[in-house]
Design a protein around this nucleic acid. Structure first.
Lengths: 310, 310
DNA sequence: CAACTGCCATATGCTATACGTATGGGTGAT
DNA sequence: ATCACCCATACGTATAGCATATGGCAGTTG
């Protein structure tokens, strides 16, 4: 049995006549007559009672008709769903976010706008660290991840730059420098640097250390935090200072103040990573939306800093 | 797109390999490869990611797989339902019952046994009069009817005898004959006979009148009742006497007593009628069950009467 | 009453297509 | 480096669905 047979069955039932159904189907009467008969043979039931004026559903045909309609409906849904998936208008995206990324407003805002663009898309978010996210990409646990580059295994991934976020220094309450809006790294070189474990984000970790190096100093490594946002409470507890993405200044943790860093200042780079072979239109589309939104964000950032320097 | 394509799709997805799926499907690898590729072309999506070691579902394929399974399941159900309908193991029967038929225990009992035989069958019952039931058979409102023959239009119906039920006389309380267990019709010939309208059941109506005639008397026609069971309350109200099927003596209406009729006594005949062209196996099966149950019932009836005469 | 009209069934030829066989290409394992 | 595995391509064949032509049956019309 074939879907075509079901379509023929339903059409003949709707028209009450093989001839009428045939012209509705754009075919001739004899082959339709054959197909109906063949369907009846295959099913082992008589679907139509042949009369002089057209055909009439038997009781068995009557019982099977709604089921045939259901299958046809589902087949139509199957086709249209495939089209939507192909055009990136439906589906499901599992998205991974590196530490503290949701705190940068442009990211959640863009995700929100994307969801409004494609309402039939469901999206699940997961926050983790960059190496874990890249591993998740490889084993298909997530479809797309916003990471802090570089990725551990860039060969099998496609990584696109999103933005370079300025960083700030977090100082505990009562620190001698809290009155100064801009601080250089060498001014805090002798104080313990609270930093997250390198395994959880080597890119940003190294960016901070190399900025210290460019400033001609070597930081004293203090307590290690399990994640980027985790450094702030440790600073508040007086265990040292920390360098964090500027978006973390949103966290108005009691007892911590944030201060701009004079050059050479590290930058917190964000990138979006997908599997190299990934050609799911939906994912491609989200990558595109993220890149353009972040490009606009960086442009605005430059304008702000230009305004500040003036 | 075709159901076959869906089956191929699901099988390949389950085996993760076109070669393995091909042998599971009892075919060679190249045509299966072709069919998968053709399905992808028709849908406009890539279902599998070809790898060196077998194939792997793409995200789109993953999204479509459960839908394909659903369609295949429904197709299987469609086929098995057709088989069940063909074998009379599933379906729906609309059954019509002539007046007072449910009061004869053998009928509801047999229906109950039939339902236990075929649990997947739903059955709807409707009580009406014989001419209306035959009309309902013609316009497919019911599939089968237990009537009191003859049918008005026996040409397009198949009618099978079920049983001949004895009749009894219903007398009002205080009647002069209530002490006698057996009464002959001529003993009540001069009292108004409560009988239902002839249009609602000519067979039984005429059987009663011809029994009077055989007894050599002519009844005085009294009030007409709208149905067979409706005569009993009228007898209770003292409007006359009535002749009813023996099963109506189940109704212990206050103020009415039932008495056997000595020969010549009318019989209340029941028959089952279906449309002449009716070949729904389920209906055929129910007719068969009814006939054999009623044959047994009649045999038992003869045995009882034999015992009584002894 | 005869011719006609609709409608379904059967017969036949053609074309499309699904399958099998043979073979090539690329990748990981021995 | 050879081998093994698996997918893709090429080609021939057989099946099957479709169109055309025609027959048969019943109800209708002149």
């Amino acid at each position: 049995m074939d879907i075509r047979h079901l379509r023929y069955f339903v059409t003949v039932a709707e028209h009450g006549s093989i001839t009428r159904a045939a012209e509705a189907l754009g075919m001739e009467q004899p082959p339709l007559s054959q197909q109906i008969r063949q369907l009846e043979r295959n099913l082992g039931v008589v679907l139509f009672e042949r009369q002089t004026r057209g055909v009439r559903l038997t009781d068995i045909g009557q019982a099977l008709l709604p089921r045939a309609r259901t299958i046809l409906d589902l087949q139509g849904q199957f086709l249209s769903t495939a089209q939507e998936l192909a055009r990136g208008e439906a589906g499901h995206i599992r998205m991974g976010l590196a530490g503290a990324v949701p705190l940068l407003p442009v990211i959640p805002l863009t995700i929100r706008r994307f969801r409004e663009m494609v309402p039939n898309v469901t999206l699940s978010l997961e926050e983790s660290n960059t190496p874990a996210l890249c591993a998740a990409l490889h084993d298909h646990t997530v479809d797309l991840a916003i990471i802090r580059p570089p990725a551990p295994d860039p060969a099998r991934l496609s990584v696109f730059h999103l933005l370079d976020e300025p960083t700030v220094i977090a100082l505990p309450r009562g620190h001698r420098l809290t009155t100064r809006p801009v601080i250089s790294l060498d001014m805090v070189a002798d104080e313990p640097l609270i930093i997250f474990a390198r395994e959880l984000g080597p890119g940003f970790h190294d960016a901070i250390l190399s900025a210290y190096q460019s400033a001609g100093v070597t930081p004293v490594i203090g307590q290690q935090a399990p994640q980027i946002a985790g450094t702030v409470p440790l600073v508040a507890a007086g265990l040292g200072v920390s360098v964090v993405p500027r978006s973390l200044s949103q966290i108005h943790a009691g007892g911590v103040t944030f201060h701009a860093i004079s050059a050479p200042a590290p930058r917190a780079t964000l990138a979006v990573a997908i599997r190299a072979g990934q050609n799911m239109p939906l994912v491609t589309r989200l990558v595109h939306v993220l890149r353009s939104a972040c490009k606009a964000w960086e442009k605005q950032l430059v304008a702000e800093s230009f305004f500040e320097t003036e």
